[in-house]
């Protein structure tokens, strides 16, 4: 099997064959998920703990459902109301949890690199469900699967990523994944929302959205956080929508069969026009949610296989 990773901390450490392996398995799970009996025993008897240090309804429930459908015992820990409040450090929390012998740990944390730190301290497989403005690998993988299903391929596509690139872990993971798969990437947004050093990332940067969308096969919109709308990064919601909101007029410049994506939750009328988000011929936003569960099932399954192999080898006294 070509998927060798022990943890899924980011897209950065995955090779293209590993990405393809994961997407192929997720494609199978997508089929399973459409059946009435959506059950597999891939994780039977294993314990999955979802630790969310930052609120998220959709990602947490997607991981929860993924684990349950694979037969794992799933526990959700809302870390905002737990011992973290009492002053426990991240490492102590990790050690405490580790003592409970979980097999799979799904972690979201508001600080970049926190999930990597935690992964060093535990004996189980760790999945990064988003750390600060660093990476959100399962989001990039579900976007990749959605694109592959809609466009029939995941290479040589022109992908426009629009909006708050600077603060988006979704953008970073997508940038890495789509780059690894040899696509042409364009970043669109105001200079205030572009990360520094973007010129060296092998992408094209556009401040003019019309210019950036020209001929794009995939239009990926990003969510604009409320706290960035008040004049610090952009002047106002209305000016942002005028210049970088996706409406029919701007979308008309993209390829005629371009698909529209959004990681959610959407701000209708801020970054995307409501009718475009709802257009079943263009928008694949609901597909993204559906593929989210399938991709997370595939990630959990593959990591569990590697974990079992590693433990089996250790028990047999083999060096790995």
């Amino acid at each position: 099997m070509s998927f060798r990773a022990r943890h899924l901390l980011g897209i950065d450490h995955l090779s293209p064959p590993e990405i393809v392996t994961l997407l192929d398995l997720a494609q199978d799970y997508a089929g399973l998920n459409r059946r009435t009996i959506k059950h597999s025993d891939a994780l039977a008897g294993m314990t999955q703990i979802n630790m969310f240090f930052e609120n998220s309804t959709r990602t947490q429930s997607s991981f929860e459902l993924a684990g349950m459908r694979l037969g794992a015992d799933v526990m959700n820990m809302s870390m905002q109301t737990s011992s973290v409040k009492k002053g426990e450090t991240l490492i102590d929390t990790a050690l405490t949890l580790n003592a409970m012998q979980p097999d799979l740990l799904v972690v979201r944390h508001p600080q970049s690199g926190a999930v990597n730190l935690l992964a060093e301290k535990v004996n189980c497989a760790v999945i990064n469900a988003g750390d600060g403005r660093h990476e959100h690998p399962t989001q990039a993988l579900l976007d990749a699967l959605t694109i592959r299903r809609a466009k029939g391929r995941l290479h040589r596509l022109s992908v426009a990523i629009c909006g708050d690139i600077a603060h988006s872990r979704v953008a970073r993971s997508n940038l890495i994944l789509l780059g690894k798969m040899e696509n042409r990437i364009r970043l669109i947004g105001p200079a205030t929302l572009m990360p520094a050093g973007v010129g060296e990332m092998g992408v094209e940067v556009f401040e003019d959205m019309r210019e950036g969308l020209r001929g794009a096969d995939v239009v990926m919109m990003l969510r604009l956080q409320r706290e960035r709308m008040d004049g610090g990064f952009i002047p106002s919601e209305r000016e942002y929508y005028h210049r970088w909101g996706l409406d029919a007029e701007k979308l008309a410049l993209a390829a005629p069969d371009a698909i529209v994506m959004h990681p959610g939750p959407m701000n209708r009328g801020v970054e995307i026009d409501g009718t475009i988000a709802d257009d079943i011929n263009r928008s694949v936003i609901q597909d993204q949610v559906e593929m989210g569960v399938a991709v997370r099932m595939a990630a959990l399954d593959l990591l569990a296989r590697n974990l079992r192999a590693e433990r089996g080898a250790a028990a047999a006294g083999v060096m790995v």
Partner: peptide
């Protein structure tokens, strides 16, 4: 000096 104006409009 706290929030930028609508420079585009």
């Amino acid at each position: 000096g706290r929030e930028m104006v609508e420079i585009g409009f």
